[in-house]
Design a protein around this nucleic acid. Structure first.
Lengths: 244, 244
DNA sequence: CGGAGTTTTGAAGGACGTCAACATCTGTGG
DNA sequence: CCACAGATGTTGACGTCCTTCAAAACTCCG
């Protein structure tokens, strides 16, 4: 039996919503139905831009499946990666709440399916079901704490620690257990790690090489596997190391 | 005629609420009354701690008058300043929304008067008057954008630019026009500026000395006056300078 | 006037960016 | 299947921005 794109999407949506979307936690079945009914379904193909820094923020997204990279460009052509977003996470919330332009750009790393609400619809929804607003705030609070932590790291830590922290966060957000260790679940370059850690790809490369020597990680082209998470934390938290 | 502390406070609250508190923008008079009725009035004397990093977040504050310093300590005893908060701004919102511990510490720089709601009361209020929740989100969105910008700066800019950005932000948030120029409206040390810019007090001192030579600022003990805001922006945005 | 807190300035050293060259891998098209 | 271009990763050498260390001057307050 052939299924149309919408049927497949519907199935994904149902699965997704049942498996713990933080935004809808504690929402009644009725509320959930209404939310989905008000949403637009969309797909963002790999490499496509979902929203762009500086453009007026009109929409808010829930990722059903796939992955986005949220990054910010500077006037002089540099780029930093704010974060990656995976299934069940929300995108574009900051701007939509504030009625400001998007502060960053979101690009699909792989084909990504989304539920999308525009500003007014979301406001309606949040008014009818206050728990959605509360959840959104809790999510924003979490993101904010992460930003504060990263800012603190950037101001007080040396590069090696920062890279260790970056990798630790990636383990939590996108780690996948394998036979060898924990692998970051999407292709990631040295340049990407550099843009997350506030350094250059050269320094990341050197650091990973050292860590590979020490048996802490294995890394290859667009791939990082953490063999010894404990050692990574030891570096990130600047604890005394063995064999020093 | 003698006025009790509460009368004085009441007068301040009334004045404050009429002069543009972003949190209550668009709220009905009734809603405002109710909000104030549900609030606890409090004072935080200069030097006192309003809330502390790591402690459970129970309360949410609106500053009626005074100033707070919000900072974050690292495990190894370093400190960074997240931001200063002045009259009409809110404090403790992140943690309260998320039900997490406070991610930072707030200390009164001067005697500070506050309206305080605890978690449950605020939730009640936001449910009855959704516009409050919306406003809170808009404010959080703004804070988040600021954090993202600072993170970007920290990752891509040299110290001089970062210090210039820090000062620019202070001008907007706490600048006061004087005969000479724009003065930062509270005592601020080189150490403070360093903790906001991600550098050391030595570098801040050297940089301010250079700027003083160039006629961009005047600075003294715990004091900074911007004589030439345009030049400061020129440095912050790395535009081509005259006389180079 | 003494002492604590703040600021200034110099000198030295190092962490890390920059520059450069090369190696390796992937995908594409002949 | 191979050649080739483009993207990605590695490593060395060098320079420099900025921290660190050190000492002294200044300011405020009791």
């Amino acid at each position: 039996m052939m299924l149309g794109i919408h049927s497949i999407m519907d199935a994904m949506v149902q699965t997704a919503l049942r498996s713990g979307v933080a935004l809808f936690e504690g929402l009644s079945d009725q509320g959930l139905e209404e939310a989905v009914a008000l949403a637009r379904r969309g797909k963002c193909a790999r490499g496509e831009t979902l929203f762009e820094q500086g453009k007026p923020a009109v929409a808010f997204h829930l990722i059903i499946a796939g992955r986005l990279k949220v990054s910010k460009d500077t006037v002089d052509g540099q780029q930093i990666i704010i974060r990656y977003l995976g299934a069940h996470e929300i995108a574009g919330c900051i701007a939509v709440c504030g009625g400001m332009p998007y502060p960053a750009t979101a690009v699909a790393m792989e084909d990504t399916w989304l539920l999308t609400w525009d500003r007014t619809r979301l406001a309606q929804l949040a008014e009818r079901y206050p728990v959605i607003g509360m959840n959104a705030m809790r999510i924003m609070g979490g993101r904010m704490m992460e930003l504060q932590s990263r800012l603190t790291e950037m101001q007080t830590e040396r590069v090696e620690r920062r890279i260790a922290h970056t990798l630790s966060r990636l383990v939590v957000q996108a780690g996948r257990r394998t036979a060898d260790g924990i692998e970051i679940d999407f292709p990631i370059t040295r340049q990407d790690l550099a843009e997350m850690s506030g350094t250059t790809l050269h320094t990341v490369s050197r650091t990973l090489s050292e860590w590979e020597q020490a048996g802490i990680v294995t890394s290859g082209r667009q791939k990082v596997v953490i063999l010894n998470p404990h050692a990574l934390i030891t570096i990130a938290e600047d604890l005394p190391r063995d064999g020093g």
